[in-house]
């Protein structure tokens, strides 16, 4: 009896690429996740703008906090939705049945979640700059946003994979996620404030190092534990 098809286990990289392609293709078609994240993020920025009638100096001081609160809340919506899509029709099982290293699935999902966050940030930043009259397009600040988003996507994807197995996933994810995000939020807010205030790189470097260390540590932990988190 000859086999009808020839196959070999997909390489780690091609499995990651396949998961990213699948997420982006599905989102491009439905636009469910991005539209909800974008609308929510823009609403938060608008609400803060009207709620805090700040003078120009105070606006500059409040900017890092408002920006990161916006990214974190909008990101949580995206993480919940991204994993709910996998769970609702049994798709997560379909993914886990594939003969690939399961950390490739984690990296694929994390990269997709990061891409969605970056898209939202790309829209939010110019809108925020216009509304608050603050120039956010500084290379240092953009680097902080990228590093913070990587850390957020790394830990958020892992915890979303955990929370999605429960009935209370929508509530559970922020409860699990926010305490773990405290280091990345403190570092991101401090580093963002430093760049906005025009501090020299040496003053901001410790916060950047903390962000980098957080990213490396949580990516490594997620790589090691994802298989156990998703299996019953």
């Amino acid at each position: 009896m000859g086999r009808e098809t020839s196959s070999a286990p997909a390489s780690f990289i091609s499995a990651v690429r396949a998961v990213v392609w699948k997420d982006l293709a599905a989102e491009l078609r439905s636009r469910e996740l991005l539209s909800s994240m974008l609308v929510f993020a823009l609403l938060v920025v608008l609400i803060f703008n009207f709620a805090l009638e700040l003078d120009p100096q105070a606006r500059l001081t409040a900017t890092p906090g408002i920006l990161w609160a916006t990214f974190v809340f909008a990101g949580t919506l995206g993480l919940n939705r991204s994993m709910a899509i996998e769970k609702d029709r049994g798709c997560l099982d379909g993914l886990l049945l594939a003969p690939v290293d399961r950390s490739a699935i984690y990296f694929g999902k994390a990269i997709s979640n990061l891409a969605f966050m970056v898209i939202v940030e790309t829209v939010v930043l110019p809108v925020y700059s216009l509304l608050y009259n603050v120039n956010l397009f500084q290379p240092g600040l953009l680097l902080v946003i990228l590093l913070g988003s990587v850390g957020y996507a790394a830990v958020g994807t892992l915890l979303a994979s955990m929370a999605v197995q429960t009935r209370t996933r929508d509530v559970l994810l922020p409860i699990l996620l926010f305490p773990l995000l405290i280091p990345v939020l403190i570092a991101a807010v401090k580093a963002s404030a430093g760049f906005l205030a025009g501090l020299p790189l040496a003053d901001v470097a410790p916060w950047l190092n903390l962000l980098l260390a957080y990213d490396v540590i949580f990516i490594a932990i997620s790589f090691m534990v994802f298989d156990y988190v998703v299996e019953e």
Binding site: S7, R89, G90, C91, L95
Partner: peptide
């Protein structure tokens, strides 16, 4: 175990890539 926002062909293409 299929993605509703992908076509039949895209679903199979995705799993074909995952199975190498």
């Amino acid at each position: 175990l299929l993605y509703g926002d992908l076509t039949a062909e895209e679903n199979l293409r995705f799993f074909a890539r995952m199975y190498g």
